[in-house]
């Protein structure tokens, strides 16, 4: 049981890294990694929202949506949008320090496709409640890891001499390609 959960978390975080292996959440990823501070804030915001969103959508789907599976997309996106709003309001009022750290990244999260993708995958793979939560944690840790790695690389890129046409996004994607090769090396880790 425990080894199964460990397997899920490692494969979600590293072997099947959402950004580098499954191409999910790229838009916000490329935008946020501009600075290390922003990456850290975003990483925590994602871990936080992802876990709550997974728990809520799992409960909604398994308790109320028997026979209404076709409404999955519409219900989940609304749940997540509402959740993000509520979290924002709650943090602003009650935990101002936390709000300061990750508040401005919360609105960005509604359109972060990873949140929605993970909730869909949980339903698709028929995970139990605990497994879903562990999977959500794993993917969001993996996302945080990816954010920090690229943010670090980009910090260095700023000082380096880059070919003219590769300035800006092209060099970012080239770096991502090289990091992705490293992540490919983890394939086969989980037996």
């Amino acid at each position: 049981m425990l080894s199964n959960l460990l397997k899920i978390i490692i494969s979600a975080a590293i072997v099947d890294n959402m950004v580098f292996i499954r191409y999910i959440a790229l838009c916000s990823y490329v935008g946020v990694t501009n600075s290390i501070d922003a990456s850290i804030g975003m990483a925590f915001a994602v871990i936080f929202v992802q876990t709550i969103a997974t728990a809520i959508t799992w409960i909604i789907f398994h308790l109320f949506m028997q026979g209404l599976e076709f409404l999955e997309i519409i219900v989940f996106i609304f749940t997540i949008a509402a959740l993000v709003q509520l979290v924002e309001i709650y943090l602003k009022k009650n935990v101002p320090s936390l709000y300061k750290a990750m508040g401005i990244y919360l609105p960005l999260i509604t359109t972060n496709c990873m949140i929605l993708a993970v909730t869909f995958i949980n339903i698709d793979k028929n995970y139990t409640f605990i497994e879903s939560l562990v999977y959500a944690l794993g993917t969001s840790f993996g996302y945080g890891l990816a954010l920090l790695i690229l943010a670090g690389v980009r910090e260095r890129l700023r000082l380096s001499n880059i070919p003219k046409f590769f300035k800006g996004y092209p060099i970012v994607f080239t770096s991502m390609a090289l990091i992705a090769i490293a992540f490919l090396g983890f394939k086969g880790l989980i037996k």
């Binding site: 191409y23 092209p170 994607f173 080239t174 390609a177 090289l178 992705a180 490919l184």
Partner: peptide
Amino acid sequence: PPGGFFLIAVFI
């Protein structure tokens, strides 16, 4: 994935 990222870099 690496090939995909690299190709999109070249495209841009």
